[in-house]
Simulated scan of single mutants.
Amino acid sequence: MKKTSIRVLLAILFVSSKLQAQSVAVADLQKWPKGASPVEIGKRVADRFIATLHPNFGRPTPPKVITYPEVCAWYGALKFSQGSKDKKLKQALVARFEPFFGPEANMVPLPDHVDYCVFGCIPLELYTQTKEQRYLDMGKNIADKQWGPPEGPRVKPESQGFYDKGYTWQTRLWIDDMFMITAVQAQAFRATGDRKYIDRAAREMVMYLDSLQRDNGLFYHAPDVPFFWGRGDGWMAAGTAELLRSLPADNPDRPRIMEGYQKMMASLLKYQDEKGMWHQLIDDPESWPETSCTGMFAFAMITGVKNGWLDQKTYGAAARKAWLGLTSYIDENGDIREVCQGTNKKNDRQYYLDRRRITGDMHGQAPVLWCAAALLQK
């Protein structure tokens, strides 16, 4: 071989190896710029959670019961304390729960609605980390009530029909449910090892996927509201990832759930902007970058890459970009900006574009903590 040919070949190999190394770096979920690591960010946001009183959807008055956004942030903080091995943080999170066994017992939500039952995630995670029986008793009771017979003022005409078919009577076919329901049932499975919890959550998930997922992999906010609202889809993305990470390989519903999850993740890649963000209306470039949905989608992708369900090169790069974009919205207090306020459904594009943008709302704080915890998983 001529010397010129050898030099050309070596140059090609050098460029190829350099491009490959750059590709790996872009998709790397281990090394981060100073101030953007999951340990640093998670600590700031978790400490902010500890310092925050029980929120009430932005109202100045305290809530009557613990709200689901606080539950979601609390769960993320507990998972982060475990992943970062922060014993002081864990102790603070345990201490925050203690009043529910005494003077604040009335703040424990009644398990008669999906947004209330998700509270069970917290005592079940506390049990997993501490092995104190009282946490298991509380959390297991909530998970069992969710699949018990319909009772109470929230029962609707269709509730009995869902119950008779083996679904929770709290079924309402809102995409939010696929985090609220699957999270507490998956937690009950992790705490007890009893497969009934995760098996029934999986069956419920399949019903929601079959009923609500669109051909493009995304989900309308509701069947009668044809808009791909960011956080609504975020609940589904996070819920499928949370379920799949503990769903046994031999569960008959696992292939269908994995199919729906991967289809959604592939669709989301198309809508991530150049700064790593997803928007208030996912497919509407005129809508604003929204942090709570970005955090939820990032969590779903991080979890998928870590568990080998998603291609690391493609989705690792998207997840890294999302995390760096997301952390740029966190202020000096540990509060994240540009969080869509609590939102009901409405068949009106402008309604979604005009939603108030909040700083420090738990809807946005929670997924930052989920991401930080997921990034720390080996």
Rank of each mutant, 00 (worst) to 15 (best):
K87W: 02
D335L: 11
A222I: 00
T182P: 09
R154C: 00
L353T: 01
L326E: 08
A366L: 01
P150G: 07
P111T: 13
E259D: 15
K34W: 00
E242T: 15
Y208M: 10
A25R: 14
R195A: 09
M264N: 12
P226E: 07
E242I: 02
T168C: 03
R190P: 01
R44D: 03
N106Y: 10
V45F: 01
E40C: 02
I50F: 04
T61S: 15
A372P: 10
L89F: 05
V24R: 15
R200E: 08
D47W: 09
Q91N: 13
P223L: 07
A322H: 12
K313N: 11
D273Y: 04
A266P: 10
E98T: 12
Q20N: 11
G139P: 04
I181H: 12
Q280K: 04
K165Y: 00
D28E: 13
K156N: 03
W370E: 04
G364T: 05
R195N: 06
V26S: 14
T240A: 13
Q20R: 10
A73S: 11
K145L: 07
E290N: 03
L376W: 01
V108G: 04
A237Y: 01
D86F: 03
D137Y: 01
D311Y: 10
N251C: 11
Q272H: 06
Q262Y: 00
R190L: 11
T67P: 00
A36F: 14
L29Q: 08
P38M: 02
G230N: 07
G152C: 05
A73N: 09
Q280I: 07
Y329L: 13
L78S: 06
W288P: 00
L326I: 09
V206G: 08
G360S: 07
Y352T: 11
L281V: 13
R320P: 03
Q82P: 00
D210W: 03
Y220F: 15
Q170M: 13
T52H: 05
K156S: 05
V206P: 01
E98F: 05
Q312W: 01
W229Y: 12
A183H: 08
D348R: 12
L29C: 10
L218P: 08
K313P: 00
R59T: 05
Y271R: 02
R337K: 15
C121I: 02
A319G: 00
D284V: 08
T294N: 11
L124D: 10
S81D: 12
S23G: 04
F297S: 07
G334T: 05
P33A: 09
Y315M: 05
Y261V: 09
D284G: 07
V155M: 04
F189K: 02
K346I: 05
K79T: 07
I66G: 10
P62K: 12
K165R: 14
Q365W: 01
I336G: 08
Y135G: 08
R48S: 10
I142V: 14
D361T: 06
R349N: 02
R254G: 03
G102L: 12
L93E: 04
V108E: 06
P109L: 07
G35A: 13
A186T: 15
D283W: 06
C72I: 00
